[in-house]
Design a protein around this nucleic acid. Structure first.
Lengths: 141, 141
DNA sequence: AAGATTAATGATAGTCATTCGCAAACAAAG
DNA sequence: CTTTGTTTGCGAATGACTATCATTAATCTT
C-alpha cells in the first residue's frame, strides 16, 4: 500500500451517490473505519478521527455514522450492556462470538444457520430483513 | 383458575431462597410478570404493577427486575433501538422475531440452530454460555 | 410479641449514551 | 464568486438507567 490509508474512494463516491455532501469530517471517519480491524464505538471513532481532524465533534461522528448507516455502508452492533459498535459492510456477512471473560469478539459465518432462519421466518409468514446472532461464550477448558 | 392471578408461590419461594425479602412490591411485579403474555419493558411493568400497588416507584421496579434476574427467574432482552424487555424463564427456551413494522414480537424455537451454534463455537474453542438470536422481519406480501 | 437488625422503598439527583437546536462555516450549484 | 442548502460545533435536552439517603418494613432475636 502506498498511502497510510486504505483506499476509501469507493466509499466516498457511494456516500455522495446516496445524496450526502463530502466533508473533511466524513472522510476522516471513513478512513478510521477503513483502517479499523476491530469494532469501535462512537467514543473510539471520535478519538481516532481527531488524529486526522482535531476539531471534529462527537455530534458529527454520531451524524456521520447515521449517514453511513442510512447509505448502507456501515452496520451497527448493540452488544449487551455496551454502547453501539460499528463496522464496514464491505466485509462478508458474519455473526459474532463474544468472549465473556476477555470481551474479545470473534467473527463466524454459517450458511446453514442463515438458511434455517429464513425457513423459520417464512413458515411464520415473515421475510428476514436482517438478523442478529451473538454467542456469548467462554473458552473451553 | 380460582384467583385473578396465576400461582406465583413457586416464584416467591425461589426469590426468598435466593436471599431476597418478600415485599408487597415484589409480589406485585411477580404477578404482573406471571400474567404477561407479551414482553413488557420497565415502564410497562411499572404501569401494570401500579394497579395492585399504586404507590410502587419505578426505581423499585428496576430493582425488583434486577433481583429476579440475579435469581435467574427473569431474562432481559435488549432489542435494537428499544428499551429492555423482560419475560419469565420458566417458559421453554425460544428466540424472537421482531416485526419491524408493528413492533410485535413472535417467539420461535429451533433445535437445529441451537445445535449448529454449539458446533460452530466448539470448532473455535468455545462453549456457548448463552446466545441471542433475533430476526428483524417484515410480513411477507 | 416487642425490639433489634438489616434490607427494601420512594423520591430525587446523577450518569451515560445519544439526539436536538441553532448560529456560523462550508460544499455544491449556477 | 455568489447563492443555496447542508453540515458543523457547541451546548442544552432527552431517555434509560443507577446511586443516594432518610424512612419504612421484613426477618431475626429473645
Amino acid at each position: 500500500m502506498n498511502t497510510p490509508y486504505r483506499n476509501t474512494d469507493q466509499q466516498v463516491a457511494a456516500l455522495q451517490r446516496a445524496g450526502f455532501r463530502i466533508t473533511a469530517q466524513r472522510i476522516a471517519v471513513l478512513h478510521v473505519l477503513a483502517e479499523a480491524e476491530d469494532h469501535p464505538d462512537v467514543a473510539e471513532l471520535h478519538l481516532r478521527a481527531k488524529i486526522a481532524d482535531p476539531k471534529i465533534s462527537i455530534a458529527t461522528v454520531y451524524r456521520t455514522i447515521a449517514a453511513l448507516e442510512q447509505a448502507g455502508m456501515v452496520t451497527r452492533h448493540s452488544f449487551e450492556g455496551a454502547s453501539a459498535r460499528f463496522e464496514r459492510v464491505d466485509k462478508l456477512h458474519h455473526d459474532h462470538i463474544i468472549d465473556l471473560d476477555s470481551g474479545q469478539i470473534v467473527e463466524f459465518q454459517s450458511d446453514r444457520i442463515e438458511q434455517l432462519q429464513a425457513e423459520i421466518a417464512a413458515r411464520l409468514g415473515y421475510d428476514v430483513v436482517h438478523h442478529r446472532l451473538e454467542l456469548y461464550c467462554r473458552k473451553r477448558p
